[in-house]
Design a protein around this nucleic acid. Sequence first.
DNA 1: TGGAATCGTTGGGACTTCCCACGATAGGGT
DNA 2: ACCCTATCGTGGGAAGTCCCAACGATTCCA
Lengths: 152, 152
Amino acid sequence: MEAPSPSVLQIARLGMVVKRGFGQAMADETWAQDAGLRPGCFGVLRAISTAGSPPSQRELSESLGMDPSDVVGLVDVLEHAGYVERQRDPGDRRRYALTLTPAGIRAHDRFLEVAETVADSVFGALDGPERAELDRVLAKLLQAHEPPPPGS
Amino acid sequence: MEAPSPSVLQIARLGMVVKRGFGQAMADETWAQDAGLRPGCFGVLRAISTAGSPPSQRELSESLGMDPSDVVGLVDVLEHAGYVERQRDPGDRRRYALTLTPAGIRAHDRFLEVAETVADSVFGALDGPERAELDRVLAKLLQAHEPPPPGS
DNA sequence: TGGAATCGTTGGGACTTCCCACGATAGGGT
DNA sequence: ACCCTATCGTGGGAAGTCCCAACGATTCCA
């Protein structure tokens, strides 16, 4: 039976390919290496950048699908590198309001370039429409697995 | 920037979702738990099953995109569970010829069921054509990144 | 026959992921 | 005003994964 069930393996496998490619591409970026940036830092930078208002670390952890305790170290690195700032939310002093510094925005842009290089390498076998369709489907799947936080 | 490059993040992210979902689904399968099967064992089982002739561990490692040293432990578990057999290749006594036992075939089938359940959970938001197209594109991408052994 | 290459294996280091528990702060009910 | 509960960020540790560097055994090539 040629059931399409192993597609879960393909996804997991492709995820590893991307992860490896990204890690390898990052090894060439001396500026990131010097700042001590870890792979997960890109996700944090991107999540802060795309968030409507300065997010808290918990919102980040939900938006990234990772444990809050793991976000701490990532933000630590980024703050120490001068890319993000932790400001106490005046409305709720338990939370932080995370913002990107100008240097953080530049770092994010450079990250995007690297990501695009990796994407070209990974998706090179796809033509334009295929790639657009893949993008759309992936976004749909992630959105289905991550109920967006309403106005709360 | 023309294309939304962060699709690489989506892939990696979705890979984690699958991995988690699979691990969680496997936690309910007592037979696998009792046999001490690890997540990677499914990939090994599937690789042996889909290989044309009994593969060596090195062929497995290439086909799975993992390090040969990590295949050892996986095959150890599977052999100890009575699912695969290590037979020396008479033509090259350095290699093993890995074969599935009848119990291994049954285990593989049960694995497939679990995988299908996970797939339904992950791809639930997609309709038939979308899912088929995703399958096709993923296979295309993996094939581009892993030239298959022609001697089958 | 001797040297180089390959296969399986061992060991270990660096890293990620996940879970539990703690102080600090906030909210809700009486 | 008080407790009780919940949430946020944080620390620590267990388990797992990925990757590399070696080593005996075996094979291949000159």
